[in-house]
């Protein structure tokens, strides 16, 4: 099988800042890859370019071997703040992606109910987002992404605003549901533990210019549970990532200087 996503010399410049230096990467189908790095290192830019929301200045993004020209239906994107529509019930939020693709009401609601069950929200089908906690709203957003059965899922710090426990629980749930569907995942986070616990592969990014510094394989069994954070494999990995990021973060802070 060919690569799901292939980046060829993709870069992005904002003014005179090299947000992303020319990057070459391949994401293999069905893998869960995490992109970890300090804030402002260009990880979200890279994700946006793959999502088709941002055009790189140069290079090419190939998805399933053909050049990407913009957003595509088979790509699901999960944002940092849960992008839920407050005037719609959980069910109709979940069915929204299918609705915009003109799937008939009965069919899309049936699919929405099924994915809501998978993310553990069956009892909240008729609730409105304001009645849910932040973690549950993010699950609604995940359910909506799953509803279209995407082959590529891009997650931009989806659990960044949540507390540590919820974050681990939701991360593992996401891992479980995407493993069932076989989608390729690129997951952006600034949490090193989250990266080690969830992924098959960790890409470590540094800032200014944003570039991938390390490409690590995570040698943990495919089925993860929270206790694995403490395993020797994960601990060693976290330490390795930390060493690189620490010097990067310090360098970035010195270079950026005080923000006005």
């Amino acid at each position: 099988m060919g690569a799901k996503v292939e980046l060829r010399d993709v870069d992005r410049v904002y003014g005179d800042v090299q947000a992303l230096s020319p990057t070459n990467q391949v994401l293999e189908p069905g893998t869960f890859t995490t992109l970890v790095g300090p804030s402002g290192c260009g990880k979200s830019t890279l994700l946006d370019i793959i999502a088709g929301l941002n055009k790189g200045n140069g290079g090419q993004v190939l998805i399933d071997g053909s050049p990407s020209t913009g957003p595509r239906r088979e790509t699901g994107v999960i944002f940092q703040e849960a992008a839920v529509l407050p005037w719609r019930t959980v069910l109709d939020n979940t069915a929204f992606a299918l609705e915009t693709q003109k799937v008939p009401v009965r069919k899309r609601r049936e699919i929405a109910r099924e994915v809501l069950q998978r993310v553990g929200l069956s009892d909240f089908v008729n609730h409105y987002p304001h009645q849910l906690s932040g973690g549950m709203r993010q699950r609604v957003a995940i359910a909506r992404v799953l509803s279209t059965d995407p082959d590529l899922i891009l997650a931009d710090e989806p659990f960044g605003a949540l507390d540590e426990q919820t974050r681990v629980v939701l991360g593992l749930e996401l891992l479980k549901v995407v493993r069932q569907g076989g989608a390729t995942v690129l997951f952006v986070t600034h949490s090193i533990q989250e990266a080690a616990l969830l992924s098959d592969r960790v890409l470590v990014m540094g800032a200014r210019p944003g570039k991938i510094l390390l490409d690590l394989h995570v040698d943990l069994p495919p089925d993860r549970d929270p206790t694995m954070v403490g395993s020797p494999v994960a601990t060693a990995l976290v330490e390795q990532i930390w060493t690189v990021l620490k010097s990067e973060a310090q360098r970035a802070m010195v270079e950026q200087g005080p923000r006005s």
Binding site: A51, L53, G70, P71, R73, T75, V77, F79, Q80, E81, A82, A83, L85, F96, A97, E99, T100
Partner: peptide, 20 residues
Amino acid sequence: RSVLRLAAVLQLDPFQRTFK
């Protein structure tokens, strides 16, 4: 912003974007 980005990701046409 996330809601606007959602509209972009789902490739809504101008009519859907405005009314939905």
